[in-house]
Amino acid sequence: YAHPVSSRNKVISHLLLTEPTPLAANQDDSTNDGSLRTLLTLCDLLNRELLVLIGWAKQIPGFSGLSLVDQMSLLQSGWMEALLVGVAWRSQGMPGEELVFAGNLRLDEAQCRAAGLADLYEALRHLTSKYQAMNLTPEEVVTLKAMALANSDADPVDCPDSVQRFQDELHEALQEYELSRREQHRAGRLLMSLPLLRQTADRAVQAFLQLHRHRCVPLHKLLLEMLDAK
């Protein structure tokens, strides 16, 4: 590697430092329908998480140097993947196999099914199990989240070389980190987990679009805009 280990680990140290504090859910009280209340609470949380995610993305080393068009493309394509890394990480080892959307919003299978999110529950539990089996470190989680955004296969790309450099920097940071732990296969294994994350995020996007289109669940403007970009 062209750069000393310390400069690479700076990327991961920076990602750890700028990782946002998990948000709390604001319980919706606009309806007596329990399932709808859960959905509205979840969608409100998701919308606020999106706002935080956009602020977080700006702090990933190299992201703000991309053109505005490419920043938008990456976020429009990879936002759900980046958010789901957090959900799957928080949901590890939960009794009752609950999904931890927030400390005060934990949903089990029955609650998800009642809210019309059975498919999302199944997909997210599968992702959570995968991460749990891999025994991820916090360093790996923050890097995976940034890579999910960088690796979003956005199209069209305004400046492919800059996006490629952005991806390479994160990849090299991960490689350096794993080699410093003498884990020569870990970086590859993490990269090979990205397709499952993409698949899970696609199912999540479909689930929320269906809620909006078929059950007319109202969504905040930013969330709707990002779902529509899919």
């Binding site: 706002l51 956009i54 602020g55 505005l68 938008m72 976020l75 930013l222 805009e225």
Partner: peptide, 20 residues
């Protein structure tokens, strides 16, 4: 850009984290 105006505005605002 017109279709994605909230994201566009949030990214343009500043390089600091987005205020809630």
């Amino acid at each position: 850009k017109e279709k994605h105006k909230i994201l566009h505005r949030l990214l343009q605002n500043s390089t600091s984290p987005v205020e809630l």
